[in-house]
Write a protein that binds this DNA or RNA. Structure first.
Lengths: 232, 232
DNA sequence: CGCTCTATTGATAAACCTCAAATACAGTGG
DNA sequence: CCACTGTATTTGAGGTTTATCAATAGAGCG
């Protein structure tokens, strides 16, 4: 582990450190192990005997699930300051999610005994963990509602808006989603097919709501998209 | 494990008490407030300013979400020993779920300051809470995968099996799901319509896989259902 | 027995997927 | 700079799944 004396801003902002003293903060970092992954590597695979949870320090991860027939669903994208695989720490079973790095990605990993020990020392860590995990539940429950009750194009709109909020950066034309997103990716994130995504984006491009290129989306009229997502 | 002679069995089994000493157990119960609800009452409604989490002691709750158009989705059914609305404790925002009692239901409620205080005293409580909440995430993520990738009748099969595992009781004919379940309920739990559920159940009744009555399901051939859920 | 709520079933239509084929794009090496 | 290759994207035609609508039948309850 590189006990990094000048820790990066992204880590400071992470929800897991909220309200901790400098001392607690340092203890948490000291117990973790830093690992760096090249782009498109698999951090852990669905079904692997996972024993660590990971905090992203730099880079971005795609979290997916596969069903028996090999069809993929994207659970989410996470970036600096976000956690994944908390399940692996508190459940004696495999975490049925796959994590893949999109860019060069540095994570800090903690194993179960260390995290349990830390929590006993500093219970606020557990409270922060609960906050993070509960956020994930709310998101998942809401997306579940959407996929059960809304039309495909509404869901695509919500997907783009969600990704925009997580990874949007302002440009001259509008808000660029800062993740390489193929039509297939958007489909996997929205529960549909790449063909339907392509048709839908084409229509929105005609409306002037978005500009899209190869694996790239710029949202030029977020308000129209929000409107559409809510009313259909 | 330590046992409290005065505490009911359902509470003993609850995951929130795992590994706690008798003293910790008692403290947890002392800080909670017991409330009893008549059948079909609303414990809390989506959007209410919720400030408590609830542990079911006796009875059963239906947890639902509504979208803007009023379409309902059933997030889950929970019974004795299970928790809900943990979000209300750790997030300063409303819990966007509705909880309705199906029978006469007794719950124990904790508010935020009390629970935070308890966790600081006994960090194991937080670890147990994490376990409970993570379980819910896994379930939700898996159902999300299903609703995105599987056919309606597969999802209905999985719904029945899931409910069977949570609330099944053996009878002469097979395994009875011990919840009053209308076709509409099954539809809301599976992300489809009552008509499709009705057709599907009729077909399975012809196959001899289930027996169904008014708001009642008996699974006579679980193995066939499992097989069907996995292969389609 | 009449009332209300639930369930069944057929006909129809809408939403969406699948397949196929063509086109656009980015990177590579000549 | 350009052709080449592999991927990503677009678009049309056709089919499947599933929702919707409408009408009827059944179950429980006072």
């Amino acid at each position: 582990m590189d006990t990094n004396p000048h820790q990066s801003d992204s880590l400071h902002q992470s929800e897991i450190f909220i309200g901790l003293t400098r001392e607690q903060n340092a203890a948490l970092l000291k117990e973790g192990r830093s690992i760096t992954f090249q782009p498109k590597s698999i951090l852990f695979h669905q079904g692997d005997p996972a024993k660590h949870c990971y905090l992203v320090n730099q880079g971005r991860l795609k979290l997916t699930k596969l069903n028996e027939q090999g069809r993929e669903v994207i659970i989410g994208y996470i970036g600096a300051g976000e956690l994944t695989a908390v399940t692996a720490l508190f459940k004696n079973r495999n975490y049925l999610v796959t994590a893949e790095s999109l860019e060069e990605t540095e994570v800090i990993g903690w194993d179960k005994p260390k995290m349990i020990h830390l929590i006993h020392q500093y219970p606020d860590i557990a409270i922060n963990l609960l906050g993070i995990v509960l956020e994930r539940i709310d998101d998942m429950q809401h997306r579940y509602l959407e996929v059960c009750t809304e039309y495909v194009d509404q869901r695509i709109a919500r997907s783009l808006l969600r990704l925009m909020r997580r990874a949007g950066s302002k440009t001259r034309d509008g808000i660029l989603i800062d993740i390489a997103l193929s039509r297939q990716n958007i489909a996997d994130y929205s529960g549909t097919t790449l063909y339907t995504v392509s048709r839908t984006l084409s229509a929105w491009e005609k409306n002037g709501w978005i500009k899209s290129g190869r694996e790239q989306i710029v949202i030029t009229n977020p308000h129209a998209l929000v409107q559409f997502a809510e009313t259909g």
